[in-house]
């Protein structure tokens, strides 16, 4: 290495004799290796997110402000060419779904130890626990506020978050009061649940009361498919 660097840094011996007849500017600025601009920026130490250890990012946190701006742009983007609130929520949900599919194996990998591999949650209750604790803690650094099951419909379960991080800076205008931008988080939950084979549809609903302690309270309603609940009952 030490023998090659002086040759690279000192360009004077490099130009062949023919270049003396060529433009003098070419001599002053020897041709540099052309940088390929792909538009992707890499850190100065050349370590991208793909070079990092999967486990090492466990404690690193992101700036909340930069996430807020990014999410704000995501909502603005999703709002383009939508026909209504349902359509907008569907788009946010679809944006979160692949995230859930990828987070499941990542989180299972991280919670595993060489001697005790973490089992994949294959039943409803362990799955809800996994979502409300492991997933929530990974995404928002805290657990969800509660898990409830519907008293009227055995296929419905609810995860309740008093103050969803994604909605922290968002004020929904009066004419769109049905909208809850946490549909994005609902999409993540749906992605996780469908990846373990418990098919369901997840939606986010506003449950905060005006002037109450938690005006941004959100209920994530998880509607499992009939056969999922049937299978759950058969295994007991």
């Amino acid at each position: 290495m030490t023998t090659t660097t002086p040759a690279l840094s000192g360009p004077k011996p490099l130009p062949p004799p023919t270049s003396l007849q060529q433009q003098s500017s070419a001599q002053r600025a020897p041709p540099q290796p052309q940088q390929q601009h792909t538009g992707l920026r890499t850190p100065s130490n050349r370590k991208t997110i793909y070079d990092r250890n999967l486990n090492r990012t466990r404690t690193t946190e992101l700036s909340r402000a930069s996430f807020a701006y990014l999410f704000s742009e995501m909502v603005t983007y999703a709002q383009k060419r939508v026909t209504g609130i349902q359509d907008l929520e569907r788009r946010l949900n679809e944006a979160g779904y692949p995230l859930g599919q990828r987070l499941l194996p990542l989180l299972l990998y991280r919670t595993s130890t060489p001697t005790h591999p973490a089992p994949r949650p294959t039943r409803i209750l362990p799955l809800l626990q996994f979502i409300a604790h492991t997933l929530w803690r990974h995404l928002f650094s805290r657990s969800a506020d509660s898990i409830e099951s519907s008293s009227t419909n055995p296929t419905e379960y609810m995860i309740i978050d008093n103050e969803p991080l994604v909605n922290q800076y968002i004020s929904v205008p009066k004419e769109m009061s049905q909208l809850n931008c946490a549909a994005f988080v609902a999409g993540i939950v749906e992605g996780v649940a469908c990846s373990v084979g418990l098919g369901c549809a997840v939606s986010a609903h506003n449950a905060g009361e005006e002037g109450g302690m938690w005006p941004g309270k959100t209920v994530f309603l998880i509607r499992f498919e009939e056969e999922v609940v049937k299978r759950e009952g058969a295994g007991k």
Binding site: A65, A68, Y69, F71, S72, E73, M74, V75, T76, Q79, Y169, I170, S171, V172, P173, M176, C181
Partner: peptide
């Protein structure tokens, strides 16, 4: 925080 980070503003 609450105005500039709001996608509906």
């Amino acid at each position: 925080d609450y105005v500039m980070k709001n996608p509906f503003y």
